[in-house]
Design a protein around this nucleic acid. Structure first.
Lengths: 385, 385
DNA sequence: TGAATTAGTAAACTGCTCAGCAATATCCAG
DNA sequence: CTGGATATTGCTGAGCAGTTTACTAATTCA
C-alpha cells in the first residue's frame, strides 16, 4: 500500500471537495448544515464555500422568508450547470443521447431510429447528428461538454474497440473514441451496453440499495453486467459478464423459444413476436406459457452460473423484455431455486430502454469526479484529455 | 461519496501511517529514503519517525560500517515483532497453524493430522492444541496475537458460520469464531479455504502481478476463490465462487474420472489414486491420459463459466492436485480455448498446501492494517474486538 | 421591548510542513 | 596528514489551514 503523504494544500483541496460533495445533490444549504455534513468547523466551511463561490462552483442565495427563529442564513447552492456530460446509447435500432448537468439532472434526451444495417461510418455520422441536435437544442457547443460515455453491444476493450464480436455490422473495425475525439476534447469512454445499464440501475434504478448486483439485459440478445462492491466490473479485457458465450448456457437460443411459439402472427417482427407471446402468456395461453417457461429455463442456467460465481445481493431483470417481467420473474425464480445455493432478490428494471444512456451519464460524471479528485478544483471548465 | 473533512491531527496520523508503510517490508532505511518513499519532507519524516521510535513501532540502528561517502545516517527499522498474527487451516485431514510477525515473515509453522470423522468439538479442541504448541514454541501468550483468520471448507457467512454445506462433519452447527473468541480477545475471522488460498497466491504466490484472479482449489473437492481488482470477493452471503454447485458444472464428479481409471491399485486411497493416475499419465499410460482428459473436460466447464463471467487476467491451478499441474494444465488449456472468448493466463500454484493458512495470515495482517487506519497508531498492542 | 436563537466574523492559538542554513562526520585526493 | 567534497543531522523562522472562542448582527417570539 503506497500511501503518499499529505500536506496542507492537499488537505485544503480535499476539504474543498468534501464541501462540493456535501453541496451537490442537496437542496441549497446553510454553512452550518454543510459543516455538519462535511465534518468541518463553521468558520472553515465559510472560507471554503466562499472560495467556491468566487471560483464559480457555487452560488449564494440570500436569505428570504424564513419561518424559523434566529438570524436567517444565506444558503449555498451547487452550480450544477457549470458543466454538462453526455451519455449515449449506440444501439442496433436506435441512437439515444442524454445530456445531463453535473448533478445528474437530465437536461435533454433525444432518441432517433437507426438503420440496423448501417455500416460504422454511417452509424457514427448518425450519432453525430443526434448529438448536434441535442447540443443545439440546449444552446451548447462541444466545448461545454466535460465527459462522454457511449454504450455499444459486445465486449469493449480498454481503448473502446469492440474486437471480439458485436451485432453492429462491421463495428469491430470502428473506433468510436477516435471519431468522437475529433470533435470533443473532453474525456471519452466507450463501454459495453449491459455494463452501462447495470450502472444506471444502481444509480437511479431498482438496485440503488445494493452493492453486489447482477444485471441482465434481456431482449432478442441476452447479456449481463456486473457490479461488485459498488463498482462496475469490467474484467481484465473488458469482457466480464459474457457468460452467454458458453455453449452450456443457451442464452443465444433462449429467445428463440418465444419466436417459435405456436400462434405467433406470421407477420410479426422478432421483437413483436416476443411481446405477443408475453401478452398471450399473461392472458393464460397454454402454448405461450410453455414458451415462456422454456425461455426462462434456458435463461436460468446462465443466471445461476453468475449467481453461484458471484453471490450477488440482487439480480435485476432489465432490457427490452423487462416490460414483461410480470410473466418472466416468477418462472425464473422457480428455475433459479433449482440451481442456486442462496437465492438473491430478483427485481425487474424500471428504467426501460434509457438505462444504457443513463449509465453512460453516470460513468461520465464519475470521470468528472475523478478528475476533480486528482487535479483539484480550479475554476470550472471542461477537462482536456 | 461522503468524504469527511480532515484536520491537522488526522493529517499527522495519516502521514505517520505512510511512514510505517514506507518502513515496513523494506531494509532499514535512512530518513532521506523514507522521505522519498512517503512523499514528505525530511524534517517532517524526522519528527514522525522519532515518535514512532518512542512509541515502539520502530527501532534506530546506529550508523556502523558505512562504505558510502558523507556523514553516516542512522537507519530506522520497522519493529515487525511488535505484534504477531495467526493463519489457520482447519482441514478435513490436517490442521495447519502459521504464526507470522507484522511484516508477514513466518515465525513458526506447525502441521498436525486431523481425524476426518472428528466432530466439531473434537476438531476445535485439536485446533486449540496446535495453536498452544505454536505459541509455546514461540514463547508467546494469546495476548500477543493481534488477529486470527481460519480457513474451512464450504461457504462461510459474515459471522463465520458454515450454514449451507461443508464436508467437515457436523460443522454447520459449529461456531469457530465464538470458540476462538473465548481465549483470544483479538479480531477473529473465519473464511472459506479457497478464498484464503486465492489471497495467498496473490500475496506470495504465482499471481502477485495480477489484480483479477480466478483461483482453483483442485483436489478431491474442487472449489474456487475470486480476487477482483486486487481484493477478495466474498459475495453478499459469502458464497462467491461456489460455481461447483451448478449441475451443469460437474466439479463434484470430475475427480471420479481419476479414481475409476483402469489400472489404479485397488488398495489406493482416493487421494493416492489420483496421484497414481497423474504419474501414470506422465509416464504415457493411455488409460490414465484418458482419465486426466475426462477430468479436465469436466473441470473446464466450471472454469470457463468463471472466466467468461469475470474475464480474469490469470487462472491459478492450486490445491492438492497442483503438484501434477504438468499433466493437467495443457489439456485444461485446450478445453478452455473451446469455451472461452479470451483465454487468460493459466498458472500452476507453487505454494502447495500451506496456501490456505498463508492466506489467513495475509487477511489477519489486513485486519491489523485497517485497525491502524481507523484508530491511528498509539503504542503497539493487540487490538481488542 | 427584551429574551432567545441562530448566523457571520474576527482574533488568538495550535500544529504541521517546508525552505534554508549551520554543524557534523566521513571519504578521498593530493 | 590535511583540506575539500559529500551527505546527513539538527535547528529556526515563515507560512498555512483549521479549531476554538468570543463577539456582533439579524431575526422571531413572548
Amino acid at each position: 500500500m503506497a500511501t503518499t503523504g499529505t500536506d496542507l494544500s492537499r488537505m485544503r483541496e480535499m476539504n474543498q471537495l468534501s464541501i462540493v460533495w456535501a453541496l451537490r445533490g442537496n437542496p441549497p444549504s446553510t454553512v452550518t448544515e454543510l459543516a455538519g455534513r462535511a465534518g468541518l468547523s463553521r468558520p472553515a466551511v465559510d472560507v471554503l464555500v466562499q472560495s467556491l463561490v468566487t471560483d464559480g462552483w457555487a452560488e449564494v442565495e440570500e436569505p428570504g422568508a424564513n419561518s424559523v427563529v434566529g438570524r436567517p442564513a444565506r444558503r449555498f447552492r451547487f452550480r450544477a450547470d457549470a458543466g454538462h456530460v453526455l451519455g449515449i446509447d449506440i444501439g442496433v435500432h436506435k441512437i439515444l443521447v442524454v445530456l445531463s448537468d453535473l448533478e445528474g439532472n437530465l437536461v435533454r434526451t433525444l432518441r432517433r431510429p437507426a438503420d440496423p444495417e448501417a455500416d460504422p461510418r454511417a452509424r457514427l455520422a448518425a450519432v453525430d447528428r443526434v448529438i448536434d441536435e441535442v447540443l443545439r437544442g440546449a444552446g451548447m457547443t462541444p466545448d461545454d461538454i466535460w465527459a462522454i460515455t457511449a454504450g455499444v453491444t459486445g465486449p469493449v476493450d480498454a481503448s473502446g474497440r469492440t474486437s471480439l464480436f458485436t451485432p453492429l455490422p462491421g463495428w469491430n473495425a470502428a473506433d468510436p473514441v477516435a471519431h468522437l475525439g475529433a470533435r470533443f476534447s473532453c474525456p471519452i469512454q466507450v463501454e459495453n451496453d449491459c455494463k452501462l445499464a447495470a450502472v444506471a440501475e444502481r444509480w437511479k434504478g431498482v438496485a440503488s440499495d445494493a452493492d453486489d448486483i447482477v444485471f441482465l439485459l434481456a431482449g432478442l440478445r441476452t447479456g449481463a453486467g456486473l457490479i461488485l462492491d459498488g463498482t462496475l466490473r469490467r474484467g481484465h479485457g473488458g469482457a466480464a459478464g459474457e457468460i452467454g458465450a458458453l455453449k452450456a448456457v443457451r442464452w443465444l437460443t433462449a429467445p428463440g423459444h418465444l419466436e417459435s411459439c405456436p400462434g405467433v402472427p406470421a407477420s410479426a417482427a422478432p421483437g413483436e413476436a416476443a411481446a405477443w407471446v408475453f401478452q398471450a402468456a399473461r392472458d393464460g395461453d397454454r402454448d405461450a406459457r410453455t414458451a415462456v417457461r422454456r425461455y426462462t429455463r434456458d435463461l436460468a442456467v446462465g443466471v445461476a452460473a453468475l449467481v453461484l460465481a458471484l453471490d450477488p445481493q440482487v439480480v435485476v431483470y432489465g432490457g427490452g423484455f423487462s416490460r414483461s417481467s410480470d410473466v418472466v420473474l416468477e418462472p425464473l425464480r422457480q428455475e433459479l431455486t433449482k440451481h442456486c445455493l442462496r437465492l438473491p432478490e430478483l427485481r425487474a428494471s424500471t428504467l426501460g430502454d434509457e438505462s444504457v444512456a443513463l449509465g453512460g451519464v453516470r460513468l461520465s460524471l464519475d470521470e468528472v469526479d475523478s478528475r476533480l479528485l486528482s487535479d483539484g478544483l480550479a475554476a470550472p471548465s471542461a477537462p482536456r484529455r
